[in-house]
Computed example of a mutant assay.
Amino acid sequence: MVAQVRRHPLAAQTSELLLGRIQRGEWALGHRLPGETTLAAQLGVGRSTLREAIRELAGKGVLDSRQGAGVYVIALDVAEEWDAVLRRATIASVIEARIAIEAEAAALAAQRRTPADLRAIRRTLAAREAHGEPVDAHVDADMAFHRAVIVAAHNDVLTQLFDSFLPRLRIAMIDMLRLQPVADATDHDAHIRLADAIAHRNPSGAAESSRAHLTELKAAFS
């Protein structure tokens, strides 16, 4: 007996049920699904609900609706889900590299920062708070703040490392925030604590603020 959908939301459940049947091998890769009327009857849903479920799976790269030819299986799983796993793994690696570079740079910045460095840190901190949306503008403002901290360490190697890392870092952070936004107020407070530790010439506090913020960011995304 074929399982039927019984609860709402019907289209989402129908999509999940179709995907499950594909994953169990009921329809092989390249196989044509039964006609709309037959399949809707099997699932116990209306044709409009079935069409919506098919559109959802087509959007996820599992089905291909071909005009006049029917609906075909073109993948055995949702590509976006695996892509998201890979993207999360990449972002986690990027954040780990940031911890290695930025925690040490923050400690050095607290020891070596000049009044001009502190003004740059405060200026970029304010700009970061002002750029909440869109995501790419916020990330650019955030990167400007973190670069100001690294420049304040007065270590050319750390600055060059960060600059060489920046293009990949920017992409990863935009990707991360689009996949899973972070709480703006809490996140900005962490940046304020970092700036204050540098202002008060507290190397251990600056390093810990940097490390704690980035570790929390990694944990929130894992």
Rank of each mutant, 00 (worst) to 15 (best):
M1V: 05
R6L: 10
R7Y: 15
R7Q: 06
P9H: 09
G20T: 12
G25V: 11
A28P: 02
L29W: 00
H31C: 05
R32Q: 06
R32P: 04
P34V: 00
T38Y: 13
L39A: 00
A40Y: 13
Q42A: 09
L43I: 07
R47H: 13
S48T: 14
E52P: 02
E52K: 15
E56D: 10
L57D: 02
A58Y: 12
V62R: 11
L63N: 01
L63I: 12
S65F: 11
Q67H: 14
V73M: 14
I74T: 14
I74L: 06
A75Y: 14
V78Y: 05
V78A: 06
E81A: 09
D83L: 15
T90V: 12
T90M: 11
S93M: 10
S93Y: 04
R98W: 01
I99E: 00
I99S: 03
A100M: 11
A100T: 08
I101P: 05
E104L: 14
E104V: 11
A106N: 01
A109L: 08
A110T: 10
R112K: 03
P115Q: 13
A116S: 01
A116Y: 14
L118N: 03
L118H: 12
L118K: 08
L118G: 08
I121A: 03
R122W: 05
R122L: 02
R128Q: 05
R128K: 06
E129F: 06
E129G: 03
H131C: 12
H131S: 10
G132Y: 13
E133F: 10
V135Y: 00
D136Q: 14
A137K: 06
A137D: 03
A137F: 09
A137M: 07
V139K: 09
V139H: 09
D140R: 13
D140M: 06
A141T: 06
M143E: 14
F145W: 08
A148F: 07
V149D: 04
I150M: 01
I150T: 12
A153V: 04
N155F: 08
T159S: 03
L161G: 02
F162H: 00
D163I: 05
L166R: 07
P167G: 01
R168V: 07
R168Q: 12
L169I: 04
L169M: 05
R170A: 07
R170F: 10
A172Q: 11
M173V: 03
D175H: 02
D175Q: 14
L177C: 03
L179G: 05
L179I: 09
V182D: 01
V182K: 04
A183K: 15
D184A: 13
D187H: 12
D187N: 07
D189W: 06
H191W: 03
H191I: 06
L194F: 04
L194C: 08
A197C: 10
H200S: 06
N202D: 15
N202I: 07
P203M: 07
S204T: 09
A206G: 08
A207L: 05
E208F: 06
S210I: 06
R211I: 04
A212E: 12
A212L: 12
H213Y: 07
T215H: 10
E216D: 13
A219P: 04
A220Y: 08
